[in-house]
Design a protein around this nucleic acid. Sequence first.
RNA 1: UGGGGUGUAGCCAAGUGGCAAAGGCACCGGGUUUUGAUCCCGGCAUUCCUAGGUUCGAGUCCUAGCACCCCAGCCA
Length: 573
Amino acid sequence: MTSEPQNTPDQRPLDFIRQIVKQDQRTGKHLVPITRFPPEPNGFLHIGHAKSICLNFGISNEFNGTCHLRFDDTNPSKEEEAYVESIKTDVKWLGFDWGEHLYFASDYFDKLYNFAEQLIDKGKAYVCDLTPDQIRQYRGTLTEPGTDSPYRNRTAAENLELFRKMKAGAFPDGSRVLRAKIDMSSPAIIMRDPVIYRILRSTHHRTGDTWCIYPMYDFTHCLSDMLEKITHSLCTLEFQDNRMLYDWVLDTLETPCHPRQIEFARLNLTYTVMSKRKLLQLVNEKYVDGWDDPRMLTISGLRRRGYTPRSIRNFCAQIGIGKKESLIDMGILENAVREDLNETAARVMGVLDPLKVIIDNYPADRSETLTAQNHPQKPEFGTRELLFSRELYIERSDFMEDPPRKFFRLGPGREVRLRYGYYITCTSYETDDTGRVTALHCSYDPETRGGSSADGRKVKGTIHWVSAAHAIDGEVCLYDRLFDVEHPDGDRENDFKTHINPDSKQVLTGCKLEPSLAHLEPGSQVQFERQGYFCLDATLSTPGRPVFNRVVTLRDSWEKQAAPVQTKSLKQK
RNA sequence: UGGGGUGUAGCCAAGUGGCAAAGGCACCGGGUUUUGAUCCCGGCAUUCCUAGGUUCGAGUCCUAGCACCCCAGCCA
């Protein structure tokens, strides 16, 4: 991450959260905003987390505050060290820096325990012996109030003793819990004496077996925020009810500071699913090849696919922050990479589905070098040399035996320009038994070297090509959206997996690429002219066999008009 | 009459009572172009969930509805 302007002087209006932060700064309530990104290390980060990361770290960058990376690791049965590492990698890759501020909720276990004892002392928490099932029954329903637990009125001393025994391992898992003593008849279910500690014998990735009781989210999160002096605690909409409990804990404990929890809508994208549970299912049931499958909208999948950190940040800025639940068009994400790669990716030529072209009037023993620009709009990208010879490959789709008039490419008797090469005219073509075109015979005009003619003759089409003798072979993976309906989550009758797009991955072997591609840095992106942006897969490529992932296609107004939905077997809904 | 939220264009999203309802994506025209790309121009809500009301003036305030989302884990 080099020198990117941290504060884009972008005149985009502030979202409601930034307005609050700005206001607090202006009034002096919080001169230095402190936010935090609090992932649970139980899975990989995805594009939805990126939204939260960009929000939290973005605010700290824009308002000269700080942003903490805090792992919310209070449930050892689901969490692993490996996830911690992948999350750190992903946040860094996205371009953010937590500096010294790396924290773990598990580092607060001692303090949290003491806060729990304080709550007991205040008569605001009690040990409850009800079974999980009984607790549920006593809780009441959405419309009926709950009823008090028979253990609700134990004395503080008794509770303290019991809680200490819980901590000491005197009781089996699940046999007792510590509950906040609030109000079993509260209309808000979250306030009906929520459990704040449970007995759970599971080795924690950081604290090992030193604890057999673990604090629950609602007790941990607010206190962790408070201990870190977080000013604005940003989370998603489903935690709106939890805010009552968040505030209750801090108020009851009379803590020195009281972070403000503000909720915003989580990200939903068309043609995909976002929940960790569902992503995990896709991985476990082998619908994809792992968490970093380029079709996955995990950060690692996007990285492998070829998305740039900048494009993801721009995307997050574009969609905004609000409280309305939304379903963002996948096209916006795709557009964000196009926009970025258009600026940064060098242009090259690669033929995905090769069709041999023989230039009959070009000497068989000759070859020559032509000069091509690496980025037509940016001379600073420099130029490179292309080898031209008698036999070439062009894209199969750039020839039609009986083309319509609006088809600007090759057909019998038609002339096109080979990009940076010559004008060629198709004189004849060969087919095999099945009628499949196997080769084209063309003649070239020696006067058009470089791609322009002295006579000013109009040639509408320009196609890409590669010299047969000099091309290198490569593999290219074409990806399409993983689901074939806009909202796979929205189907109440069918499982989301019934909407998986069977053609989301297409592997092309025997692609013919220009020789310069042999030296590309793994993980970097180029534009295959007229086709799209591609990324050299860093894990699948080997020295002799490059593997490219298609990041995204170029906009294609021709295909749109000629074959609107031809590529994918998308059922329109 | 359980609680908590949300409703501005196909999708996001500004707007915080006052000249003609930002912007992006998508879409539709046109221009440039050795990528049917990029780029550039132009079009795209007489109307803000609905109905009443307050006001000289309302997307913004009030009232009543309607729709959708979240909450009954010893998950986060």
